[in-house]
Amino acid sequence: MPVITKTSSTSILEKGTHTFKISGYSSKHRGLGINKYIRSAAFAVGGYEWCIRCYLDGISTHNDHVSVYLHLLTMGAAEVRAVYTTRLVVPSTADVLTLHSTAAPVVFAGEKLVWGSPNWKKRSELESSPFLRGDCLVIECDVTVLREPRLEEVAAGLGFDLPPSNLSDNLRRLLETGEDLADVTFDVKGEIFRAHKIVLAMRSPVFKAELYGTIGDNGQDSIIVNDMEPADFKEMLHYIYSDSLPSIDDLNEVEGYNMAMRLLVAANKYAMERMKLMCESILCKRIDAKRVLFILTSAYRCRCGKLKDSCFEFINSLDRLDELLASQQYQILQRAHPAFIVDIWEKVAMSRKK
């Protein structure tokens, strides 16, 4: 006979609200196209990054509604349980109209990282409502992430003080002082780096294939790297062992930008999505008129959706596109990648369509 015991558990709630203001509804965004969306800036709730997607022309030819979705941006996250509410707001009067709310938690995981409502608001009703004022639409989204309490929180509730985790410190020391345990070496333009196959394989599927034989016959113990600078390879190893990129914060504006660009390419090469997102986040803050085409080119090559969106938003904000078109950088790109340039301006034209 099974023994039945009484159990209980506690869920931790972490809440946040994001306001998404869409200026120029009809002058800039209406007519963007079916199944095409504009998205909010990323915002953090519960330790995860999110954004709001708004399909002003709907998601299908038979849909005459504006569609709004919540998108979990954090890559590689385990299952994330959340409830959320989206609503229209008139800031000047504080009028609110709730249009979608989850009755129960939904799970953001795997291929299902986007949840929302295809029939959020009928377009004709929206355009004749007081919620579209001054050609501006304001959407608010409440997100509540539900998670199990961490061990530290459980221990604190029982009166215990657990020391902070030192796993990252131990791994970093392993990289810095554990040469006797290292089992793979990298020759990066003449500079030698020693590392540990198992750590690299856990962090990168490309390293796993390279070091344990899926690509080679029996895996490799010594690898020559010709497409990275030693300083960048050292920074990438630091990320692999510590999950951080602290050196970029210590560099000046130009050096930090250049390293972030190079590490973005490395993260894409070795399929390290979190590192790639960290580099995207750094580069999003460094977009300006001189850099935007370089950054956008890298975003295309490395398939960085968030970074591409930020570049397009910046280009759309420019008052004088003729200065960008006259730049030497644009002329070089036009000659080298004409199809890429056409794609850029098709997207810009669509977003500016009246």
Rank of each mutant, 00 (worst) to 15 (best):
T5D: 11
L32P: 02
L245C: 13
Y270H: 12
A336G: 04
V66M: 07
D64E: 15
D57M: 01
E235P: 03
L200R: 06
P130V: 11
V254M: 13
K112H: 10
C302A: 06
M236T: 11
L324K: 00
I38C: 04
G134S: 00
A155L: 09
R352A: 13
K276Y: 11
N170K: 06
V254D: 15
V143W: 00
M228L: 12
V184H: 08
D135Q: 08
K306F: 02
S129V: 04
L333C: 10
L137D: 11
Y270V: 01
V145D: 04
L325Q: 11
A267M: 07
V292F: 05
C302N: 09
L245P: 03
T74A: 01
A94D: 13
S351P: 00
A267H: 08
I192W: 05
F314T: 01
A82P: 04
E346C: 00
M1K: 07
K122L: 10
H18L: 01
R335W: 04
W345Q: 01
E179D: 15
E140V: 04
S11R: 06
V45K: 00
S9E: 14
K306T: 11
A103W: 08
V348Y: 01
G178D: 05
S11M: 12
D249G: 12
L277V: 12
D57K: 00
P163G: 09
R291K: 10
V114L: 12
S244I: 06
M236H: 06
K276S: 12
I52R: 01
N258E: 14
G256Q: 07
T74S: 05
F131V: 10
L237S: 11
S222P: 04
H62R: 10
S117V: 09
K122P: 02
C284N: 05
I344N: 03
T214Y: 04
T185P: 03
S327K: 01
L283Q: 05
N166Y: 09
K306L: 15
I287V: 13
N218K: 12
I59T: 15
R172H: 12
F193H: 14
K269W: 13
E313W: 01
V254I: 14
M278D: 09
Y48T: 00
V66S: 05
V145M: 06
S40N: 08
N268M: 05
K28I: 01
K347Y: 03
A155N: 09
V3R: 02
V145L: 05
E152L: 14
R194A: 15
F186T: 14
D161M: 09
N170W: 02
Q329M: 12
R53K: 14
G178T: 10
C141E: 11
F43E: 00
M261F: 08
K276R: 14
D217L: 13
V68S: 08
L263R: 06
S26G: 05
Y84S: 06
Y330Q: 05
R194F: 14
T102V: 06
S222M: 06
G46Y: 00
L211D: 14
R274Q: 11
A336C: 04
G256N: 05
I192D: 01
L296Y: 03
E280Q: 02
L200Y: 04
D221R: 09
M278G: 09
T144N: 03
